[in-house]
Design a protein around this nucleic acid. Structure first.
Lengths: 191, 191
DNA sequence: ATGCGATGTATCGCTCCGATACATCGGAGC
DNA sequence: GCTCCGATGTATCGGAGCGATACATCGCAT
């Protein structure tokens, strides 16, 4: 997952670790954080795989500053050609690995780089996944709500409403996606 | 986390692994799953710590069924005295470890076994946590929404609304909690 | 009888998190 | 000028939890 996120972000511009983390937080928001404890090892792994290259991006020593103090410069990462291929490959995936809880947000965040058919497939996959969960929650509530204590019940209901809300959201997105795909060569940017 | 969930469930009745997993799904619903890959190791660990004891619970031989075949019986776990103490200890915790994303649901699910003051502290802690996140999301939206593509924007907005929704939910719960407390000629305690 | 889905216990490799460590930089306040 | 502090910046370690997988039994439908 982190791999996709990193590839996606670096495809916009080269970044160093810290910036990457900031962008991750800003882009994925509430859905996923990704700590340095996974970021740095992932960058290392991706470098070893050849998806990214690092270059000493210290830059800005301005003029004469000798920098004799072995100050460590920022390590800036950028996509390699293989990395771009890898990104395309990951963005083309339209299976469960794209619509499960942990991964959906990341895939969605890079939808503008994703093929329209793939977008719809992922949105629909995500929706069915949530519909299953919704039905499970509903029948669980019907079956056992009398045996549940107040708090368990509250938790179940809140969870169910969250799922219902997300299903509605997805349905809207799918409709937008469909109508944008078929009708207009001229996107007057609805909404 | 799993440890608390297991202790909480076993405090209601002894269960074997498979049942435990079912109850976990039913109780925590959408919030948390917990796979066997963590359940069994956790049970082992808890057994080693002395919180739980396992007893050969083949049970259900109904009437005369001999069951001579060395069939492996279910392994039924039950709380020990130390386990009950441990549960009480965990339920009394009212710090960040109780209101972070991963843990809040589990703590909430066992609120009926939790002291009323602790319940309120946890709900409030959770709410401030989410309020921070909400402010972060809001300022991020204000600051950068023009630079975001359509999908990133959608994701941010959906995330923000989810957080706002959960804050409202928590506020209701806190109010209910306070008014149910019947003890409160003494609100005191700002923050 | 045969196979199939639910029940049941268990492990392995992996990703990711939280805590921690350490170093530099720019500015605020003394 | 000096010192502290929070933001920037890179990095590791231990542990929790997940998904896949394996294997065996049970009851039921075909």
């Amino acid at each position: 997952m982190l791999e996709l996120a990193v590839l996606g972000l670096l495809s916009e511009s080269p970044l160093h670790g810290y910036e990457l983390r900031q962008r991750l937080k800003a882009t994925l928001g509430a859905f996923r954080a990704f700590s340095y404890g996974s970021l740095y090892p992932t960058l290392r792994r991706m470098r070893a795989s050849g998806w990214i290259a690092e270059h000493e991006g210290d830059a800005e020593v301005v003029a004469g500053a000798p920098a004799l103090t072995g100050r460590r410069g920022k390590v800036v990462y950028e996509l390699t050609a293989e990395g771009k291929e890898r990104l395309a490959e990951l963005l083309a995936e339209a299976g469960p690995s794209a619509w499960e809880d942990e991964s959906f947000g990341v895939h969605f965040a890079f939808f503008s780089q994703t093929a329209p058919e793939v977008r719809v497939r992922i949105l629909e996959g995500r929706r069915s996944r949530l519909e299953e969960r919704r039905e499970g929650a509903r029948s669980s509530l019907k079956r056992a709500s009398s045996r549940m204590d107040r708090y368990t019940l509250q938790l179940q209901e809140h969870g169910l409403e969250s799922v219902e809300r997300e299903v509605r959201w997805l349905t809207e997105l799918i409709e937008t996606e469909r109508s944008a795909g078929t009708t207009p060569p001229h996107p007057a940017d609805p909404q």
